[in-house]
Amino acid sequence: MAGNYLTEMTDFTSDKRLAKENKIKQLLGKISLPWTITIGYLILILLLPITALITKSITLGFEEFWRIATSEVAMSAYEVSFLTALIAALINGVMGTLIAWVLVRYEFPGKKVIDAAVDLPFALPTSVAGLVLATVYSDKGWIGQLFAPLGIKIAFTRLGVFVAMLFISLPFIVRTLQPVLQEMESEVEEAALSLGASEWQTFWRVILPPLLPPILTGVALGFSRAVGEYGSVVIVSSGIPFQDLIAPVLVFQRLEQYDVAGATVIGTVLLIVSLVLLLLINLLQQWGRRYAVK
């Protein structure tokens, strides 16, 4: 009896050891070639430069960091950047939704061309976009000359920054919404109508609610793109502090003055805001999928 018991015991421990070995093997198995390449690439391309930026700005010490980060010029540049980008993204939230709706629901000649043109801000080099906008919106440009007599200057003012941000953020909302609208069945609208809803009620209660998460996602994407925009804004604005100077241009100005520390601090602030935004976008997308659980 006792002997049997003992062998059982040893069997048991060897089983345990085997299980442990298996677990280690499993873990090692997960570190496959694709995994290694993925992590290596991400570290090299994404994490390393970001870490370098943060380390550089940390070496300044908190007080110095805070002083530069909250200096008057920087604060005004954030305001121009974030506020203008927010307004541009919100306006495109409405206009982009309308454009996506028309592109999905309506048939008209030239639809394919317009659909392709929506991607123009993606495809165009940002400096070219800036050049185009500066030409059209300057005092003698096609649109600028209409506003000049009213005393409204667009190019080389904050309005110019705003126009550039409108231009650059539009495709994000349209392209986020289009697939969602295509998937939407028209039967759902007919169902609402058959239940006695007016067209207005159908829009507010049936069509819009499932569109809100993708609209917000598109707005957030467009906003973060507008905040990060540099190339077109630097051309279409004058870059004067407290007027139309945006944060990314401020970073570049600091670098031109060999103020690397100042540039890194403002860069870090922008980085943190971008990360928060990305997190927000992810949460929005999760929220949008909450009722799509299979």
Partner: peptide, 8 residues
């Protein structure tokens, strides 16, 4: 409707 057309 054939495909239910429920409000998702």
């Amino acid at each position: 409707f054939q495909h239910y057309a429920l409000f998702k």
